[in-house]
Amino acid sequence: MQKFKEFPKGKINNVEGNCILLKGDDIDTDRIIPARYLKCVNFESLGNQVFADDREEKNGLHPFDIKKNSEASILVVNRNFGCGSSREHAPQALMRWGIRAIVGLSFAEIFYGNCLSLGIPCVKMIEKNLIELEQLINSSHQFRCELDLNKEILISHQNSWPIIINQGASQMLLSGHWDATSTLTKANQEINIVKSNLPYLNQFKIKK
């Protein structure tokens, strides 16, 4: 695990750092954080346990153990990353290890939402560009990039690739409102209106 980096807070315009490449489709949240590590009442110790079983199997050769990746912030993945269980422990573990943004071909939905609520952007790239990015990461000692959410690009020293980000997510990150609680709790009046109109909360009396 990396030495402590500040967790995301406030407006997130960009994420800058070294890239770490994790190949493979359908990497599920059980692999990101095996269930036995979910026995906890806080998230604090999860950073060490990220990809625990995969890392043990690879015996030091897993990307999360390779020395050149030790400072990485931008995780590069393939398709359907984060599928399976809804456990927020998965993005929590990645964040506590040091990941601050994820770039890939596609993401599982619950995982994507969980990342957003921690201030970790998950952005997509088209396959051709992702392959190019993978090659550059593989051929460099360390490959540094900046994810610019305003311009919707990923830029390196010599390259610039367009990224695809959901506009709702983008808005939340750029405005600093990705921690949805404060926005949601403000709508008390509207919440009460919906509640008082829902048949199943009102003896099934239908209001017209």
Binding site: G113, S117, L118, I191
Partner: peptide
């Protein structure tokens, strides 16, 4: 009916609502 993460559990506890697409 759908699954949510822990931050969303917090949001539902606090507001009985979620931000969703």
């Amino acid at each position: 009916a759908f699954g949510i993460g822990t931050s969303q559990v917090r949001d539902v506890l606090a507001s009985q609502t979620l931000s969703l697409d």
